[in-house]
């Protein structure tokens, strides 16, 4: 369980744009273990998709991975040729995109879209691949797959299309599945079904999953560990329990406060103030500084390092430095702390 399948170290990605270089990912590091689900959360534009696309090196032409390393099963992805990458994509690592309505090729039968990667990677015959495609359709829960395999994408509903996308991703039994907001475009009941499907697959195949989402409710359901991203950096990472009940970074606090929860239904919903940071001229201190009600002078001038709180829990905020003044987290966060300590004991 604890062996590492994927390891990112200090990855930097930037884009050339008309207004200058956009530093979308600025030093992301994390490890992913076999069979584990890591959720990547953070507001829009924080660099979640870019991070994931760098893992399969599928970035747009104006992008460059400037620094860092990405090891997949111990081998450096960044050193591979495009040709070698193609033999990894779809076979070892698969990706699922957000919008099932546009992710399928409208002029190709769905079965063919599932079969082509198998013909490509596993060198199956057309017939064999088609048979497997029908099985896969059945497995992801498309009823009447023996008949419907001939259909085109527009003949399926949104939820069914996302199932088909998952079938394409699973076609070659990848070890790592990257799901980039797979449920955002779907309604709540369908969301739950898709998540169940993914968990089910993980249980059967032992697939590792990186799950990107805005929805902390979904995170609670799927994730073993959670990484919180802000302005191209991971500001806090830990087990799901640590992030939900012992959050340390003011940005994580903000995120958690903006989720409605049952026990605080009467409380006003919180929105993090201010605008997302400028990634063309990133500040030299903590990028969250200007929006942070708990900002220290140090945040303004110095990038905070990771402070380790447990073997699995890291957060990058100067509040954790021993010289920092003691601040009181917002009440709802304090209640989360209390819940945690009640369950596990430890300091009040």
């Amino acid at each position: 369980m604890s062996e590492t399948i994927l390891s990112l170290d200090d990855v930097h990605v930037s884009f050339d744009s008309l207004n200058g270089k956009v530093h979308a990912v600025r030093g992301v590091s994390f490890d992913l273990h076999y069979g584990e689900t890591l959720a990547l959360v953070g507001e829009s534009g924080s660099g979640k998709s870019v991070t994931c696309r760098s893992i399969i090196r599928l970035l747009s032409k104006n992008a460059s991975i400037d620094d860092g390393s990405i090891l997949y099963e111990g081998k450096n992805i960044l050193a591979k040729s495009q040709r070698e990458m193609r033999s990894i994509r779809g076979k070892e690592i698969s990706i699922i995109f957000q919008d099932p309505m546009t992710s399928l090729n409208p002029t190709m039968r769905v079965s063919k879209q599932i079969a082509l990667p198998m013909i490509h990677h596993l060198h199956l015959s057309k017939h064999e691949a088609m048979k497997r495609a029908i099985e896969l359709l059945k497995r992801v829960g498309i009823p009447n797959s023996e008949v419907r395999y001939k259909d085109y994408p527009h003949q399926f509903s949104g939820g069914q299309r996302q199932r088909i996308v998952i079938a394409i991703a699973l076609a070659c039994n990848p070890k790592l599945l990257i799901a980039d907001e797979p449920t955002t475009a779907l309604d709540v009941t369908i969301q739950a079904q898709i998540i169940e499907l993914m968990k089910d697959i993980q249980k059967k195949n032992g697939t590792s999953i990186i799950f990107i989402t805005h929805d902390l409710g979904v995170v609670a359901k799927v994730a073993d560990r959670v990484a919180v991203m802000y302005a191209g950096k991971i500001v806090e990472i830990g087990t799901a329990e640590e992030i939900f009940y012992l959050p340390q970074h003011p940005y994580t606090w903000g995120l958690l406060q903006s989720v409605p929860t049952a026990d605080e239904a009467d409380e006003e919903l919180y929105a993090i103030p201010g605008a997302p940071p400028d990634l063309i001229h990133p500040s030299k201190g903590d990028a969250f500084y200007s929006r942070n009600p708990y900002a220290l002078e140090a945040d303004r001038y110095y990038e905070p390092p990771y402070f380790q709180l447990s073997p699995t829990h890291f957060a990058a905020t100067w509040l954790l430095d021993e010289r920092a003044p003691k601040v009181e987290p917002p009440p709802s966060i304090q209640r989360r702390y209390a819940t945690f300590y009640k369950k596990h004991g430890g300091k009040p």
């Binding site: 399969i56 599928l58 990458m85 193609r86 033999s87 990894i88 994509r89 779809g90 076979k91 698969s94 990706i95 995109f97 919008d99 546009t102 992710s103 399928l104 090729n105 409208p106 879209q113 082509l116 990667p117 490509h120 990677h121 996308v165 394409i168 991703a169 076609a171």
Partner: peptide, 16 residues
Amino acid sequence: SDYIELARSTGVDEWT
């Protein structure tokens, strides 16, 4: 388009 992005992510080459 998204579906071509998906096709690329399954490892087929640019000409295909």
